[in-house]
Design a protein around this nucleic acid. Structure first.
Lengths: 155, 155
DNA sequence: GAAATATAGTTGCATATGTAACTAAAAGAT
DNA sequence: ATCTTTTAGTTACATATGCAACTATATTTC
């Protein structure tokens, strides 16, 4: 049975999509628990704070495009952040349907606290790899992501 | 700003946990849509069929241990598969609480059809990589998974 | 410059998922 | 042997999520 033979047996533990899913879930769950405990934020709220903290004045649509979240998830997370006073909406002068999003002062304060935590999580993972492996990982993830995304549009 | 400096800025698009999550979701969503359309199975049902197809006679607990699913998810997916006649439970002679799970004939028939599809999905991803990159990926995923899992127990 | 079409964002509803509580059987302790 | 604790699996409930329908504004077409 050849390695490329698609008629070979399938072992779940070795199946790439399964492994990616388990790895991603393990990582995300650990981080999510952390942010929930420390700041009462879920993953989606945190993602939005991350992109707005990085570039203020984006609209919800911009956020949707940059976070791989759907617009409903963005809408809900933005509403929750606004309700908590971490984020504010400003009328978009050029488009009355849209709103420009910014962190409030207290949102910014939390953002400044989260970033180092997030980077520490990432670092803990990357520290298990050599410099060379880290670079290899970058490249592999890029390739896989673009291959996977391609498929999506073709089907 | 040094690459190892945790006080550096955070860019979501380059943040490893985020990239893993997006990649895993893209892959899983594509596969899930496929299995849903072709066989009416969701990811969890498919995972259970995969492990039972691979080793018949496991209990739900065994499945829980091998699939990184929680026992409630396993219970529900097993119930759904049984209701559709794809899987059957047999009393465990040694433990009256447990049941031994097996694919039915029609379950087995579907299993035989899914395996090549699943492998084709995997192959499409891996074909974007050289042989060497594929081996590197294996190793990196192993390292990351074990590092991530370690964290989980410590926290 | 209407009418038709597309886009930004929200809401409602149906389903999925996670946590905790539960039942029944096993295993361990005294 | 009985009492206690653990384990297998299910059920109930509360919350999260995804999809479709909706409102309001922009954009395009004729």
């Amino acid at each position: 049975m050849d390695h490329n033979d698609t008629s070979r047996a399938l072992r779940l533990a070795e199946f790439l999509p399964y492994r990616l899913s388990v790895l991603s879930n393990t990582v995300s769950t650990a981080i999510a628990a952390d942010y929930q405990r420390e700041f009462g934020l879920n993953i989606w709220q945190w993602r939005i704070m991350a992109v707005i903290g990085e570039s203020a004045g984006l609209t919800a649509s911009d956020v949707t495009a940059r976070t791989a979240m759907d617009k409903v998830a963005v809408s809900r997370a933005v509403a929750a952040l606004e309700a908590r006073g971490l984020l504010q909406r400003q009328a978009d002068p050029g488009d009355a349907r849209a709103a420009l999003l910014d962190l409030t002062e207290s949102g910014r304060a939390i953002y400044e606290q989260i970033v180092p935590l997030a980077l520490a999580h990432e670092r803990r993972l990357l520290d298990a790899l050599t410099e060379q492996e880290q670079r290899a990982l970058e490249g592999l993830l890029d390739k896989l992501a673009s291959t996977a995304a391609q498929g999506r549009s073709l089907w």
